[in-house]
């Protein structure tokens, strides 16, 4: 559990971090909360020569709302998201997701940006970020680049962040009506990561589902939008029959993971059941 040797540089500003990254290129990794990176380094699965710590950059950690957007700095910790009054009011899905993530120590150190950049196939954030139609702002020497959540997750542990880019901000359109959201999760008994994690963001009007956005993590090598479920819900009353027909598609059109704990068949079942339960909870909250 001893990492290969590396240099450590604490960047004082985002600009400095960007230029350090440009200088060291593939040899470097940025360090956020370190709760994915350091374990991988201790196992020597990753052996970066230089770590560029973003931890001292104050203006990467914030949660604010302006211009119809909720903006979250990449270095905001899971815990800060969990306790944010602003988010609890206007986007409760995020604090709820945070509350399912790891344990207190992990939430105190780990960051939302670090988790998204790492893109673990069983991480919690990707599900919610997808369900919220978030945008991710990457920055580099060339300036900012805005990436849609649906374009961000490329495959297991791989995002569309380019070499030299740092994830700076997560933007979420702030909702108008009372949010009908929920995050449910089946925790892996060893790792606590999601065997299945379902994030639901609905809008319900006149007893009918006007729109549905459902992000699912843990089930497939990357988190995805359950678009078939979404379209089966849209325009319909969320009765038992609609729900069970819709949720049967929860793991449609994706490669389903299988591991020691859960076979693909069982994961599919969990996805189906928990998608339905998440929708039921979300719909209940809209009332």
């Amino acid at each position: 559990m001893i990492p290969a040797s590396f240099d450590y540089i604490a960047a004082k500003s985002l600009d400095e971090a960007i230029s350090l990254l440009a200088k060291h290129k593939d040899d470097a990794k940025v360090l956020a909360g370190g709760h994915s990176l350091l374990p991988a380094m201790k196992l020597r699965l990753m052996q970066p020569k230089v770590l560029i710590d973003l931890g001292r950059i104050r203006d990467l950690s914030y949660i604010k709302e302006d211009g119809g957007l909720i903006r979250i700095g990449a270095m905001t910790t899971h815990f800060q998201v969990e306790i944010s009054d602003l988010l609890r009011r206007s986007c409760p899905l995020l604090p709820e997701t945070a509350s399912h993530l790891g344990d207190m120590q992990v939430r105190n150190k780990g960051t939302i940006g670090g988790s998204l950049a790492h893109s673990d196939p069983a991480a919690d954030w990707p599900a919610s970020i997808l369900a919220l139609d978030a945008e991710l702002v990457a920055t580099s020497a060339k300036g900012d680049r805005v990436i849609k959540a649906t374009d961000f997750f490329v495959e297991m542990l791989t995002t569309s962040l380019q070499p030299g880019e740092i994830l700076r901000e997560i933007r979420i359109p702030s909702g108008k009506s009372k949010p009908a959201q929920a995050y449910v999760k089946v925790r892996h008994p060893a790792s606590g990561f999601a065997v299945v994690g379902v994030a639901v963001n609905l809008s319900i009007d006149g007893g009918k589902c006007q729109s549905a956005a459902i992000g699912i993590t843990g089930v497939s090598p990357k988190a995805y939008r359950a678009s078939k479920v979404e379209s089966a819900l849209k325009g319909n009353a969320l009765d038992a029959k609609t729900l069970s027909a819709a949720c049967a598609h929860a793991a449609a059109a994706v490669d389903v993971n299988s591991d020691l704990y859960a076979s693909a068949e069982y994961r599919k079942q969990l996805a189906t059941v928990y998608t339905r339960r998440a929708i039921e909870i979300a719909a209940g909250r809209a009332k």
């Binding site: 069983a122 299988s258 591991d259 020691l260 704990y261």
Partner: peptide, 8 residues
């Protein structure tokens, strides 16, 4: 260490 990701 890679059990959960090997199949994928």
């Amino acid at each position: 260490v890679g059990q959960r990701m090997i199949q994928a």
